[in-house]
């Protein structure tokens, strides 16, 4: 019954790590936010509004990163049938969706002063981010609408894998569509264009976000395992009657 053995080991590890993880997350967030809001200079072009970047860009990164992670967990589950991998992919989805949503909201807050509009379909990233969010929702819908857990797990795995392929295709086609409709009118903010004085805060924020995700992920994975155990017990009880 590896199904119980593995989670038990994992739980022990998670419980040991979590306090440190939370501490590190809070410290890094404090440094990052202080850096972002106080220390770093306002952008000469964008002014104070650039500070949204420190919230927005890491969220967007994580939105993408978590999706890749989900695809990775699904692939692992597919190949090795490791019970924890499915749970990991499942619990990652809502978190990824939240980051994605956060990126979209902050993006539109940023877009308002910069582009003069809340939403610019012309921006490829905004559009593909939105489709990514739809993916997250679809993936989560599978888990909620299929009652049988092992069945839901198998199906969700496949959908996640198909989704990963599709993310690239969507990215590609949205970029193409974008250049078709409004060639080069979008404000660029490539990594190299960012000054060092801003970059460090951005990176600290990115690490802080990643830690936050890891901590939240561990917590929800822990409760997912608890929920499974509860379910197992209940079923066993019914079986005994």
């Amino acid at each position: 019954m590896q199904q119980f053995a593995n989670p038990a080991k994992f739980l022990k590890l998670a419980n040991a790590i979590l306090p440190y993880l939370w501490a590190a997350t809070i410290i890094l967030f404090a440094i990052g936010l202080y850096g972002a809001l106080v220390i770093t200079p306002p952008d000469y072009q964008q002014g104070e509004a650039v500070r949204i970047m420190y919230v927005h860009v890491p969220a967007a990164w994580l939105g993408l990163f978590v999706y890749c992670l989900m695809g990775f967990f699904s692939a692992v589950a597919f190949v090795y049938r490791h019970p924890l991998a499915d749970a990991a992919a499942k619990t990652a989805a809502p978190l990824g969706a939240v980051f994605c949503f956060l990126a979209l909201v902050t993006g539109s807050f940023w877009g308002k002063p910069m582009w003069g509009t809340w939403w610019a379909w012309g921006d490829a990233r905004l559009t593909s981010m939105f489709i990514l969010l739809l993916f997250y929702l679809g993936y989560m819908a599978i888990w909620t609408s299929i009652d049988e857990p092992t069945r839901a797990a198998t199906i969700a795995r496949i959908v996640a894998l198909v989704g990963v392929v599709n993310v690239f295709v969507v990215k590609f086609s949205v970029n193409w569509w974008n250049t078709l409709h409004q060639p080069a009118s979008v404000i660029r903010m490539g990594g190299s264009a960012i000054d060092k004085s801003m970059l460090w805060a951005l990176l600290v924020m990115a690490v802080a976000y990643t830690l936050l995700f890891t901590a939240l992920h561990l917590v929800s994975l822990r409760s997912e395992i608890a929920a499974r155990k509860l379910r197992q017990q209940r079923i066993a009880e019914i079986g005994r009657r």
């Binding site: 489709i131 739809l134 993916f135 679809g138 819908a141 599978i142 959908v159 198909v162 989704g163 599709n166 295709v169 969507v170 590609f172 086609s173 949205v174």
Partner: peptide, 8 residues
């Protein structure tokens, strides 16, 4: 599920 797949 399918609409995002239809985007391209």
């Amino acid at each position: 599920l399918i609409l995002p797949l239809y985007v391209p």
